[in-house]
C-alpha cells in the first residue's frame, strides 16, 4: 500500500475526515439481506434431504423439522420468508431506482483496467505473495467488491426466480414440469455460489483488520478519510474534488447574495449530495 508517502500528520488529518459511504436505506437493505440469509440458509438446508445431499446431516433436517413442527411448515416458512426477502429487494430496487440503484450500478457494476489489475495482485497479497507490487488506485468499490456485486445480483435474481417457481410449483402444469426440475438445481447452484462469495465477503468485511472501517461503515454509513485515501484513492479524490467544487459553488452563491465568505475553520458548507453505493 502506498501509505509510505504519507507523513504521520497527514495520516492523522486524513483520519479526522469523515466521508459518507452508505445511505441509511442501503444500510437497512444490507442488514435486512443479512437477516434473511440467516433465516433462509439454515431452513433451506433443513429442507434438503435424500441421496442428492448427503452432506447435510440428517440431524440438521430433524432439528429444523422439530423447530417448525414438521417438514411442510418448514417449507412454508422458508418460502414465505424467501418471498418477503425477494419482494422487499425488488421493491427497493423499483422505488429507489433513480436514487439508489443507478448509483449502485454505476459504482459497482463497471470494471475498469485498474480493477482488473487490482484483482491480479490483491488476492495474492492476502497469502503473502506479490508483496512489493503496487496496488492500483480503486474507486468506491474495488475489483473484488465489483465482482462480488455481480455475483450477488445474479445470485439474488436466480435464487428469487427459482424460489418463486418452487413456491408456486403446483400451478405449473405437468407438461412444463421440467421448469420445476431445473429450478431446483439452479436454486441450489445460485445459493451455493452466492454463499461462497458471502464467505469471502464476510471475512473481508468483518474479520480482516484492514477493512474494519468498511465493517463499521455498514452501521454508521461513514468511513474516515485515511481509509478512503488508502483503499479507495480514486473515490477519495473524486469526493474531495466534488467537495471542493461544492464548497466553491456554495461560496459563490453566498457571495452572490452578499454574505461574507466564512473564515477558515468556520462555518462548513453542507455536504454535497453524494452518490453512494448500497450494499
Amino acid at each position: 500500500m502506498s501509505h509510505e508517502k504519507l507523513t504521520l500528520e497527514e495520516r492523522e488529518a486524513l483520519r479526522q475526515q469523515t466521508l459518507v459511504k452508505h445511505y441509511t436505506a442501503n444500510i437497512l437493505t444490507h442488514w435486512f439481506n443479512v437477516a434473511m440469509w440467516l433465516f433462509l440458509l439454515p431452513t433451506g438446508l433443513g429442507i434438503l434431504l435424500g441421496k442428492i445431499y448427503p452432506f447435510v446431516p440428517e440431524a440438521w433436517n430433524n432439528l429444523m423439522n422439530q423447530i417448525f413442527g414438521g417438514l411442510a411448515p418448514l417449507i412454508h416458512w422458508h418460502s414465505i420468508f424467501g418471498q418477503v426477502w425477494f419482494f422487499v429487494l425488488i421493491f427497493n430496487v423499483l422505488f429507489g431506482f433513480r436514487k439508489y440503484f443507478i448509483p449502485f450500478a454505476a459504482q459497482r457494476m463497471f470494471m475498469d483496467r485498474d480493477d482488473w489489475k487490482w484483482l491480479m495482485i490483491r488476492p495474492f497479497q492476502m497469502f503473502g505473495f506479490k508483496k512489493n507490487q503496487e496496488l492500483p488506485p480503486q474507486d468506491a468499490y474495488n475489483g473484488g467488491q465489483k465482482l462480488y456485486s455481480y455475483l450477488v445480483v445474479v445470485g439474488t435474481v436466480g435464487i428469487g426466480v427459482t424460489g418463486l417457481i418452487l413456491t408456486y410449483s403446483e400451478a405449473i402444469p405437468t407438461s412444463l414440469q421440467w421448469i420445476i426440475q431445473w429450478a431446483m438445481p439452479l436454486h441450489f447452484l445460485a445459493v451455493g455460489t452466492t454463499f461462497a462469495g458471502v464467505i469471502i465477503h464476510v471475512y473481508m468485511g468483518a474479520i480482516m483488520p484492514e477493512e474494519r472501517q468498511a465493517f463499521f461503515s455498514m452501521f454508521t454509513g461513514k468511513v474516515n478519510g485515511l481509509y478512503a485515501y488508502l483503499h479507495h484513492r480514486k473515490w477519495y479524490e473524486r469526493k474531495m474534488a466534488e467537495k471542493a467544487a461544492w464548497e466553491d459553488f456554495y461560496n459563490r452563491q453566498l457571495e452572490a447574495v452578499g454574505v461574507e465568505t466564512p473564515a477558515e475553520g468556520g462555518l462548513e458548507a453542507p455536504p454535497a449530495p453524494e452518490p453512494a453505493g448500497g450494499d
Binding site: 440428517e58 430433524n62 413442527g69 414438521g70 411448515p73
Partner: peptide
C-alpha cells in the same frame, strides 16, 4: 404450537 411445546428437540428422524 410446535414451537411453544418445543423445549428439547428430539433429533431422531421424525418422519
Amino acid at each position: 404450537a410446535a414451537l411453544a411445546k418445543a423445549g428439547i428437540f428430539d433429533l431422531t428422524p421424525a418422519r
